[in-house]
Lab assay of single mutants.
Amino acid sequence: GKMTGIVKWFNADKGFAFITPDDGSKDVFVHFSAIQNDGYKSLDEGQKVSFTIESGAKGPAAGNVTSL
């Protein structure tokens, strides 16, 4: 299901971020390909987002990341 959280930090050079979920679970890795914005895919620290949890090769990662 959809979860919500806050972007903890975003590394534009490497194209990934971490989200701190609102439910208090541990921070979730985000690859820029999961960001659903049109055009430039970036996130801002402190931004509120919704996302799903996908199981990636290196463990859980956020999918369908959308700005709220």
Rank of each mutant, 00 (worst) to 15 (best):
I53Y: 09
T52A: 09
S42L: 12
E45Q: 12
A61D: 14
A57H: 14
K2Q: 13
D27P: 07
W9R: 03
N11V: 05
A34V: 09
D22C: 13
L68R: 01
G15H: 12
I35V: 07
V30D: 00
A12P: 06
V30K: 01
I35A: 02
F18E: 03
S50C: 14
E45S: 09
T4W: 08
F29W: 11
I19Y: 00
K8A: 06
Q36E: 13
M3K: 07
G5P: 00
Q36Y: 11
D22L: 07
I53N: 07
F18K: 08
W9E: 04
T66C: 15
K8V: 08
K14P: 01
T20I: 09
G1D: 12
K48V: 08
V30C: 09
D23S: 04
G59S: 06
I19M: 01
T20G: 04
S67N: 09
G5V: 02
E54I: 03
L68K: 03
G56N: 09
K2R: 10
D13Y: 05
I19R: 00
D27G: 06
K58A: 15
K48R: 12
V65E: 14
F51H: 00
A12R: 11
V7Q: 00
V28Q: 05
D22H: 04
A12S: 08
G5S: 02
T4D: 04
N64F: 07
V7E: 00
V28E: 02
F16M: 14
A17L: 10
K8N: 07
T20N: 02
K41I: 13
F51Q: 00
P60I: 03
K14C: 15
F10C: 14
D22K: 01
A61F: 13
T4G: 03
G24K: 04
N64A: 07
T52D: 11
M3R: 05
D44L: 13
K14W: 12
G39D: 11
S55M: 12
V65C: 15
D22I: 06
N37D: 12
A34R: 05
E54M: 01
F18G: 03
V49W: 01
G5R: 00
A17N: 00
K26M: 08
D27A: 08
K2P: 11
G1Q: 10
K14S: 04
D13Q: 09
V49T: 01
M3D: 02
G39H: 11
V49I: 08
V49E: 00
Q36T: 10
A61L: 13
H31D: 14
I53Q: 08
D22F: 04
T20Y: 02
K2W: 13
K26Y: 05
A17S: 01
P21M: 04
K41Y: 10
G56I: 13
K2D: 08
N37I: 10
K8E: 01
I53S: 06
T4K: 05
T52G: 04
F32L: 12
F18R: 08
M3L: 09
